[in-house]
């Protein structure tokens, strides 16, 4: 698996798109840090970008990589390697190289800004970890969708739809449900519903860490009230991890049964 991961990584790290991706974060962090003048403001602004952009790029990259390397995968399948190792190697290569871009793009400006001497270092670390988790989650979902759909157009469509669902539609439905049923106690529902959306969950995680109640929104406040900050963070981090594991298990299941 590590051999395939290594070469997938080599291949992707020379892709122009990944340079653009890293450069975008670099420019964004530089401008937010030096123009905004405060680490916590920069972290919040970056959070809003990362929560939408990281899932989108991870989804697109995952699907594109799978379909683009379809023929090469056939060559790999004819080698003395386990099937699951091929797909996990490719998946981890994609998620890993996206993560590296994110780390470089965000990390370098923050280090030069003096994050290590700042008390905000933990807030920044949580933001970075959330970005990495979202890269892994959405590229796993993308690989899962691509493996299930031989038809590229359908696969692309479904992958974009899944991103749109988690980034936009889910929140709309969630708000609609809250306003329709606001005569009932909704705390339990609110917590449950946000667990099912990795983007919401990531937002809560960052905001809990930042401890900015004004920005926390309903679910964030409920999370804090019921679980407290520390347990809240631990819980949401654990569930984010589950969001990586479950699609990965899906990848394994399909990889074992699929005809190529």
């Amino acid at each position: 698996m590590f051999k395939i991961l290594k070469y997938t990584f080599y291949d992707l790290m020379r892709s122009r798109w990944l340079y653009i991706y890293a450069a975008f974060y670099l420019l964004l962090s530089v401008s937010l840090l030096w123009l905004g003048g405060s680490v916590s403001k920069a972290v919040i602004s970056l959070m809003n970008v990362i929560l939408v952009l990281v899932p989108l790029i991870a989804t697109m990259f995952g699907v594109m990589y799978y379909y683009n390397s379809r023929e090469f995968t056939e060559l790999l399948l004819a080698q003395p390697v386990r099937r699951t190792h091929i797909f996990f190697g490719q998946y981890l290569g994609v998620a890993g190289s996206l993560s590296l871009c994110l780390m470089l793009g965000l990390g370098v400006p923050f280090i030069f800004y003096g994050i290590f001497g700042s008390t905000e270092i933990f807030n920044f670390t949580v933001l970075l970890l959330v970005g990495l988790a979202l890269s892994f989650i959405f590229s796993a979902i993308a690989f899962f969708i691509a493996l299930r759909n031989e038809n590229r157009i359908k696969g692309f469509g479904l992958a974009i739809l899944s991103w749109l669902f988690f980034a936009v539609i889910y929140d709309g439905m969630f708000l609609l449900a809250l306003s329709l049923f606001n005569d009932y106690p909704l705390e339990g529902f609110a917590i449950g519903a946000s667990l099912f959306n990795p983007i919401d969950l990531s937002r809560i995680l960052v905001l809990l860490k930042l401890d900015i109640s004004a920005l926390m929104g309903y679910t964030g406040a409920v999370f804090q009230k019921f679980l407290g900050t520390i347990i809240g963070i631990a819980c949401s981090a654990l569930i984010l991890l589950l969001w990586v594991v479950i699609p990965a298990l899906g990848i394994k299941r399909i990889a074992m049964r699929k005809d190529f």
């Binding site: 070469y7 997938t8 080599y10 291949d11 892709s15 390397s69 023929e71 090469f72 056939e74 004819a78």
Partner: peptide, 10 residues
């Protein structure tokens, strides 16, 4: 394999 397509950047 029938189609010779490999990772482009290798």
């Amino acid at each position: 394999p029938q189609i010779a397509r490999f990772p482009e950047n290798l």
